[in-house]
Design a protein around this nucleic acid. Structure first.
Length: 912
RNA sequence: GCUGGAGUGGCGGAAUGGCAGACGCAGCGGACUUAAAAUCCGCCGAUGGGUGACUAUCGUGGGGGUUCGAGUCCCCUCUCCAGCACCA
């Protein structure tokens, strides 16, 4: 083995670790107990057909380094990996190629596993989980049944068994069917006829979170609204707890904020208006408002087009306009409603309602700026103090009455709404009150008059939990079929012992293009005879998020067939101490997981209220820096701001064709022309995707790992640079040469490696390095830890004698980062065993101190001289030396020093 | 528009309120070599002065402030990135 050759070293150690089960994690009762535990989790990947990209190993390397470090620090480390393998792409691919999703999924998993193992991660492969494995989704179904068996006790703020749900006497008196119906209406998993996001291209409904700008998150297909019977999960019941408990976790502020915004709690009141029906009679029209203090300024009302009272409230001559408007609105996607509807639209119903506070009649309109799904689907419009209402009132010439004035007496801008808090006016008993007091006074009045109540609303909606697809978990539920062949509405869960309910084998799993699930085609599977009754299985499947909601628990006990996880193991390992993954899961996966976890917590199956104690988001890795200039059709260079003009062509440039001028880059050949310099997201279409396989082939896994960590802080977005990979490869080669004789034919230590004692300077450098690497690891500052090791290597390289005592601890420091190389060097140094459980080197603070140090001396804050002194030189001594310094004298130019600041060991500043 | 984050050499990035630019890349010079690659050694923010060791001034997006001292703290402002966006 002459020189550093990762391709020869790395597969050998990967085999060694696998064969010896080096990273098998003992269960607590089998020797893990006694050690402190550390659960370090990666977001498991969806095994796509494209294979691993360089974004995956970024987070995985960070966690792997910490896992290896923590093991060496004596922790029992849980560090598992698995596959989030249900979901649309596998099914799409299956439809296109006629291959069963099971087959492609298995193939993709094998590719991912091979690629991940190729990077030398220290996962315990005996704990691998796969969400599509019946032994796994058996428990996903089990947890679904638990949700189905749970109702939310609002008083106790806690989920409880449905058997404990109090049944009102009048329901009980109506018999068993009524009781069942009542129970079904309170379960955390319930059915509802809801307008859903139907995507005909994908053949499924999507959750709100999966729809971006009116198009599907996957594939970008158009999405329309359609009413459909769906399974829902009552996540809104947990909104308050999901919000409050954010304060108990150590997560990035941005993610916490995104979750808070998503939950969107707002406090206000529900107010009942009396709507006067055109044909005579009255109806209660309930609205939600956060500004009950402005009730006197409510000059009209607006209902969502879908509001159920609209038909009753529409007068004969308004009917055609209202019908047309509702029709248009129903066909519009959310995208068209929001993006294209900057201009307010709406239609008058012809009816009026009575404002409860002043008895005035106000017109009732419908408009699509009011959303059916939020609050009550109706608003009281206060155009003077709400921008949207103001814009609508101006457009349709509705009255605007000001009922709040700015507290400082400032004038309200002409033609704008005043939305800040202020002082109430034109508001009867509220006049003169500040907005917060006015709000609560108004609510008190409403409650006394039984015309309204205090109310909290959330943007968060219940979670649409069913999909009309094949490749997902089947619902373990049976629908009773009556003698007429129609469902009776009675639903029974499968017995827990009947789980898992496997997917039927289907030749044709194509979506029909209509909202009927493909599982309906498996007629044998669908119909079940039981107790002399015919039952039909639920045909929907669960969404992809289901399996990922609880996988971190299954790792703890992946083979258990009695429970999703042994409580003793859960108790030992949970919570997850560190969870690393991309920010794209900020709201979806992380909110759903927290919700499920809280239900498990309420029902006594887990011991912690939150699953993930600490969360870190790795930043995105962009492609290489690109320099682009632009040419017009005549072939002349133009400025980048002309890029969108017709016929202008982008030209990729090399680094040496451009130069920096001022703030921007310009063409070297024509410095008047600016050049666009930026790194872009990696994408197939852009052709800037880096394949980890290639990098490993050319430089080895250790170089890839090290480079991804050396690029910059883990959380930062940063551009890829192949030259940077080469740089860390050179570093590893240099490390190799410090230890090994690279001229020798066979594996042989560098003859400079000696048994002698390190000199004082080397010892100090070593202990300095141990300190820096240790502290940097504790703070996840991988880039600076690597820099410290580079500096130490630079120190070792020129030494003619390289003492083992200075080398061995360094191998251990390097091991978490470049484990293959470190194992190889450890072996070469004569150790027979893996270094994975060697104890982490410690540093001696006494050895960190240099015999002399340099103290900068400033005059009036500017560096003028330096003193070379013993580290413990006293303050007075330093002051004396500084004042005596010729440079200081010169810069004082004869002035007497007014003040001398001395920070011992740090600096002297003479003010004169 | 709202929220969160970031602006430091040619590039990626370092800096408990105390020597700005650690470490790496690129570049330049040298050694080794018949030569190249690899490797090793040195230089490497800008401007001015000096043959030179050196030296002066400026310099962390921009403007103000606090401080003996600010990349770091405070106020204002600009730009970029990410997320949300008619949620009453």
């Amino acid at each position: 083995m002459p020189s550093y050759h990762p391709a020869a070293i790395e597969p050998r150690w990967q085999d060694y670790w696998l064969k010896n089960k080096t990273f098998r994690t003992p269960d607590p009762e089998a020797g893990g107990a006694g050690k402190p535990k550390y659960y370090i989790l990666d977001m498991f990947p969806y095994p796509s057909g494209a294979g691993l990209h360089v974004g995956h190993p970024e987070g995985y390397t960070a966690t792997d380094i910490l896992a290896r470090y923590k093991r060496m620090r004596g922790f029992a480390v849980m560090h598992p990996m698995g596959w989030d393998a249900f979901g649309l792409p596998a099914e799409q691919y299956a439809i296109e190629t006629g291959t069963h999703p099971r087959v492609t999924t298995e193939k993709n998993i094998n590719t991912f596993r091979r690629q991940i193992q190729m990077l030398g991660f220290s996962y315990d492969w005996d704990r691998e989980v796969d969400t599509t494995d019946p032994n796994y989704f058996r428990w996903t179904q089990w947890i679904f049944l638990l949700l189905h068996d749970t109702w939310f006790d609002a008083a106790a703020k806690k989920g409880r068994p449905i058997a404990e749900l109090p049944i009102p006497a009048e329901v009980k008196s109506q018999g068993e069917a009524a009781v069942r119906k009542y129970r079904d209406s309170k379960r955390l998993a319930y059915q509802a006829e809801v307008p859903v996001n139907w995507c005909s291209a994908l053949g499924t409904v999507l959750a709100n979170e999966e729809v971006i700008d009116g198009r599907s998150e996957r594939g970008g297909h158009p999405v329309v609204r359609l009413p459909l019977r769906q399974w829902m999960l009552r996540i809104t019941d947990y909104a308050d707890r999901l919000l409050e408990d954010l304060d108990t976790v150590d997560w990035p502020a941005s993610i916490q904020e995104m979750q808070r915004n998503w939950i969107g709690r707002s406090e206000g009141a529900e107010v009942d208006f009396t709507a006067l029906l055109p044909g005579g009679g009255e109806r209660t029209l309930r609205v939600f408002t956060t500004r009950p203090d402005t009730l006197f300024g409510a000059t009209y009302m607006v209902l969502a087009p879908e509001h159920p009272l609209v038909p009753d409230l529409t007068t004969g001559n308004q009917m055609p306009a209202v019908t047309t408007y509702r029709d248009q609105a129903s066909r519009k996607s959310d995208f068209e409603r929001t993006e294209l509807a900057q201009e307010k639209t709406g239609v008058f119903t012809g009816s009026y309602a009575v404002n409860p506070v002043n008895g005035k009649q106000v017109p009732i309109w419908i408009a699509d700026y009011v959303l059916a799904g939020y609050g009550t689907g109706a608003i009281m419009a206060v155009p003077a103090h709400d921008e949207r209402d103001h814009a609508f009132a101006v457009k349709f010439n509705l009255p605007i009455v000001q009922v709040v004035s700015p507290q400082d007496g400032a004038k309200i801008a002409e033609g704008a709404a005043f939305c800040e808090p202020g002082l109430a006016r034109n508001s009867g008993f509220l006049d003169g009150l500040k907005t917060p007091e006015a709000k609560s006074r108004m609510i008190d009045w409403l409650e006394k008059e039984t015309k309204g109540t205090r109310k909290v609303n959330y943007k968060l909606r219940d979670w649409l939990f069913s999909r009309q697809r094949y490749w997902g978990e089947p619902f373990p539920l049976l629908h009773e079929i009556g003698a007429d062949g129609e469902p009776t509405g009675r639903i029974e869960p499968l017995d827990r012992a009947e789980l898992p309910l496997k997917l039927p084998v289907l030749d044709d799993y194509k979506p029909s293009g209509r909202p009927e699930p493909p599982l309906g085609k498996a007629t044998d599977w669908v119909e079940v005879q039981r107790d002399g009754t015919t039952w039909r299985r639920e045909l929907n499947t669960m969404p992809q998020w289901a399996g990922s909601c609880w996988y971190y628990l299954r790792y703890l006990d992946p083979k258990n067939d009695q429970a999703f996880c042994d409580p003793a193991k859960e108790n030992y390992w949970m919570p997850v101490d560190l969870y690393v993954g991309g920010a794209e899961h900020a709201v979806l996966h992380l909110l759903y997981s927290r919700f499920w976890h809280k239900v498990l917590f309420d029902r006594g199956h887990v011991k912690t209220a939150e699953p993930f104690k600490r969360l870190v988001n790795q930043g995105m890795i962009l492609g290489e820096m690109e320099y682009t200039a632009f040419k017009n059709p005549a072939g002349a260079w133009v400025q980048p701001n002309q890029r969108d003009k017709e016929g202008v062509e982008a030209v990729r440039l090399n680094e040496d064709q451009v130069e920096k001028k001022g703030d921007s880059f310009v063409l070297k050949a024509d410095p008047g022309i600016k050049v666009d310099a930026r790194a872009n997201k990696m994408s197939k279409s852009r052709g800037n995707v880096i394949n980890p396989d290639e990098v490993v082939k050319d430089y080895g896994a250790d170089s890839l790992r090290l480079y991804e960590m050396f690029m910059g802080p883990l959380e930062a977005t940063k551009p890829w640079s192949m030259r940077g990979v080469e740089g860390v490869y050179r570093f590893l080669s240099r490390v190799w040469r410090v230890f090994m004789d690279d001229r020798a034919e066979e594996m042989k230590l560098n003859p400079q490696v000696t048994a002698g004692a390190p000199d004082a300077e080397t010892l100090r450098a070593l202990h300095q390095t141990i300190k820096r690497v240790t502290e940097d690891l504790d703070h996840m500052r991988f880039n600076t830890a690597i820099a410290a090791m580079m500096e130490y290597t630079n120190h070792l390289t020129p030494l003619a004698s390289k003492p083992r005592a200075a080398l061995e601890p360094f191998v251990l420091l390097l091991a978490p980062f470049a484990p293959h190389l470190a194992e190889e060097l450890w072996r070469a140094l004569g150790h027979a065993e893996t270094l994975a459980y060697e104890s982490w080197p410690s540093f001696d603070p006494a050895l960190l101190v240099a015999s002399t140090i340099e103290i900068p001396v400033q005059v009036n804050g500017k560096l003028r001289s330096k003193l070379v002194v013993a580290p413990d030189t006293a303050k007075e001594e330093l002051e004396k030396m500084a004042l005596a310094d010729p440079k200081v004298q010169e810069n004082l130019a004869g002035r007497a020093p007014k003040k001398v600041i001395v920070v011992p060991g740090k600096l002297v500043n003479v003010v004169g």
